[in-house]
Every structure is written in C-alpha cells, then in structure tokens.
Write a protein that binds this DNA or RNA. Structure first.
Length: 182
DNA sequence: ACGAAGATTGGCT
DNA sequence: GCCAATCTTCGTC
C-alpha cells in the first residue's frame, strides 16, 4: 500500500499545491525529509518566474509540461534548485526550499535548510531533470504529516528583488516556528 | 561566439 | 553584513 502522491495532486492550482506540499515526505533511496518551505512561481504573468511572458527555453521547457515533474537547474554555478512542476497546461512550478530530515544526524546539521543545501544533501542534480514524481522508482513524494492551516504562514519570496511588484507577492510558504526553514 | 547575470551559500573585511 | 565562488544559460553582437 502506497502513500505516494498521485498525478492529481500536482495538476492543481499552483498556490494550493505549494501550501499542500508542506509536511509532505520527499523520498529518495534511503534518504527522506518533510517539506517545510516552498515558493510558487506562476508562469507567464510572474516576472520572477523563468517562464515569464511565456518564454520557453532549453532550460525551463519542462515546466510547460504537465504537473508532477522535476524541474532542476544550476544557479550561481554552484547550487542546484529543486522545483516541481504544477498545473496541467500552464508553465508553473513550486520551488522546494527546505526539508526537515528524517534521520537525527542530518537534523542536527540542518543539512536540508535551504534550496542549495537540500539538493546537496539529497544528491539531486540534472540527472533528475524531468523525473516524474508520480511514476519514478528513485524519487517521489508521500503523504507525510498533516499540517494545520494555522501553522502555515506566507511571506515574500527570497532572492528575486529584480522582479519589481512581483517581489512583494507572498508566495513563499513555510511551517510556523519550524527550525528547519531557511 | 562572447559576455553578463543568476529562485545561494559560507567565509571573512 | 558584505562579497567572492563558479558555470550554465540566455540575449546579443
């Protein structure tokens, strides 16, 4: 019996998926962690999104596909950013910024508290580009913990000052008082 | 074909 | 708190 999240979880409104992802369990091999922080990127209208104005490139083409796929890319030449595509048709996605590791040792080191640290810890790189989280044998999401609505808080996204009015949108979601949020 | 900038992090002026 | 590291991707020459 599997608790894996199905396609239908991802092919919904992106802001809703971003909120619902909190508390879910990301599993890869023998490593796993609970999602504690996400950010939503809303396709063509969002200046902070790579798909702003419907711009489709070699890098971001996967977000134009259906929801539930991995959009991963290298930033600053050093860090990988792990995103999950959402919606059916719209080029939208959710950036997973931080995890609460399951194992004690990783918890103490806060090894997944930040988008770059998270991918380092899980060994995620371009090899996972386009991976289907609803079908993959090596990476997927499970039901995880249930987070009460009043434990979910929102705020402006991080590192996108160039996006002008879109930089103020409160599309970053995280679990209140969780120590693993970046 | 070339150059600028980036959804970050960690170390030190 | 500020700045360098590091390299792929994209826009432009």
């Amino acid at each position: 019996m599997s608790e894996r999240l199905k396609r239908q979880f991802y092919t919904r409104d992106t802001l809703q998926v971003a909120k619902d992802l909190l508390g879910k369990k990301l599993v890869k091999g023998d490593k796993a962690g609970f999602v504690v922080e996400t950010e939503a990127y809303i396709g063509p209208e969002d200046k902070a999104a790579h798909a702003y104005r419907g711009k489709k490139t070699e890098r971001n083409k996967i977000v134009f596909e259906q929801g539930g796929l991995v959009y991963i890319y290298l930033c600053y030449g050093i860090h990988w950013q792990f995103n999950i595509t959402t919606d059916k048709e719209e080029p939208e996605c959710v950036l997973v910024r931080a995890l609460e590791p399951l194992d004690e040792e990783s918890k103490i080191e806060k090894e997944a508290s930040g988008p770059g640290k998270l991918t380092d810890w899980m060994d995620l790189d371009k090899d996972f580009y386009g991976e289907d989280l609803a079908e993959s044998e090596r990476l997927w999401l499970e039901k995880g913990k249930s987070i009460k609505k009043d434990r979910i808080v929102s705020g402006p996204r991080i590192g996108i000052d160039y996006a002008e009015e879109w930089a103020d949108k409160e599309w970053r979601f995280y679990i209140k008082d969780n120590e693993f949020v970046s």
